[in-house]
Design a binder for these strands. Sequence first.
RNA 1: GUCCGCGUAGCUCAGUGGAUAGAGCAGUAGCCUUCUAAGCUAUUGGUCGCAAGUUCGAUUCUUGCCGCGGACACCA
Length: 569
Amino acid sequence: MTYFLDKAKQQIRESIAQALGREIDFNQLEITRPPDSAMGDFAVPCFYLTKLTRISPNQIAAELKNKIKLKAPLKSVQNIGPYLNFYFDDKQLAEKVIKEVTKGGEKYGSLSGDKEKVMIEYSQPNTHKEFHVGHLRNAVLGTALVNLYRFSGKKVIAANYIGDIGNHVAKCLWAYDKFHKDEPEPTEHKGQYLGKLYTDAVNLCAENEDYKKEADVVQKKLESGDKYFTVLWKKTRAWSLEEFDGIYKILGVKFDKFFYESEVEKPGKAIVADLLERKIATHSQGAVIVDLEKYNLKQFLLLKSDGSSLYSTKELALAKLKFEKYKVDASYVVVDARQSFYFQQFFKTLELIGFKKKTEHIAYEFVTLPEGAMSSRKGNVVLFEDLLKEATDLAASETTKRHTDWPAKELEIAAQKIALAAIKFAMLKTGRNNVITFELKEALAFDGFTGPYLQYTVSRINSILKKETAKNLTNVNFGQLVNHKEKELLVLLAQFSGVTKTAALTFEPSQLAQYLFEVAKAFSSYYQEIPILAAEPKTKEARLALIATVRQILVNGLSLLGIETLERM
RNA sequence: GUCCGCGUAGCUCAGUGGAUAGAGCAGUAGCCUUCUAAGCUAUUGGUCGCAAGUUCGAUUCUUGCCGCGGACACCA
């Protein structure tokens, strides 16, 4: 799919090559936006041309300005210093952009034809632990990445890899068995209940060496198929999975495939045995390691000295499974940046084994609290459920202030949508490399650069379009859209597809978030100044078509970020 | 100690090898008989951590230093 802006940019490049009378590397010839829209719609800095011709950038810009022959939709070109600034024909711009967005609808901006099949693994919660805002960032980021990748035309398998076994499970079950097995079973929030037990267990084991040993014995028993603990494990594991399922439903987070650590534990151990045989792995202090010293990656631990498995043991088998069974071309794993070193070791190990497939760690920084890191041990984690409740209550009270007459059901649905938008957007609006210091006040903000502001913008457009819409675009006179704010909006809208593509390739949904905010601001300013329904019929028709286009872009973009919009708010 | 990330306005963050470094929040001053004020307009606020180097040109690239956060074998 080639959109209007791509074609226009290509025309700019070709017109320059033609005027110059020689071939140029179009990849080197960048097309940017001037600092002020009055200076042009798009700009070409001429420094690259100077390299080719040895004529000063200012001079070559001046010469080319007179030689360039423009075709629609481009109207004119100006040279300002070392820049060639191009202007669109307003009517053409409006007509092309509005028509292609209208035609594309919810698919507008998407690309197709890419044959690559990738797996994006994310979320990876641990059973028997609590689901907090740290996990939330991963789930929200992963969802956005899956959406963006699909939008840019790739086949994506969204995968979850649930940590349903391991030392944390053993600790939780040890605590359950030792202190709680005679209690009545919890009837709700069973996952959270287990999380609490786990926290207690961590503290107890830290204080008491004997307790830690007991918990380790539980892990050994689990791995050797002990009946009692296996039954207990299956039951409690289901409690956690049920909780995750509920959270994913609320979040609108979906997976095509669930992997469980429990299913790759044995195959993982088999791989480790094979690596020992092949002398890629060796024994060290009773444990199994891969020596990566010569790559400056220390030693990579594959098996504990008591023979039980580690994360790495299982991940070896998982990597194999992904490529062999699911035949993906690339595997992306969305995991906290604190695991970067581990992944370097892991990828190097795969390389030594002879694995040639593309695997990449999509690292993001963690979520912390103003008073320091969240930790189950300190009991200062912010649970997703608590955060959602707080946000929903606030959204409900804000909505009630504005609409005293809304039916209870609509109020309830709206409050949750607004709350989720606020929370998700807060997680997505900054780049992956930023540590998010979680502050409730900020997560619950509904104005400025927030999800609710974007939803509000859509609702305002809805409110107009509910009264009247442009019936048939063939009769619309696009020449009516001459206001500079209309022009600004159109140029912005035309960039949507490019933004989503870059956001996908760089694994940075924040770029889309920033862009959508710009669109919303441009619309709000326009909305304030320019009457739509009260305009002359012809003008009104064109403006209605324009704002429907703005809505489509905002809805499409928000949906990629996993954020729903509301009919009214 | 080694490695990774970050350091831009009071706070939270965009941004770019080149045209006057931008937003949001907070502050100040305005705007609701007119399409939803979760909004808009104006305005205050910056030696882009410090130093050197590469370059016609560095906040952006390189190196060193400083500060903050993180990782560095039996957790995941």
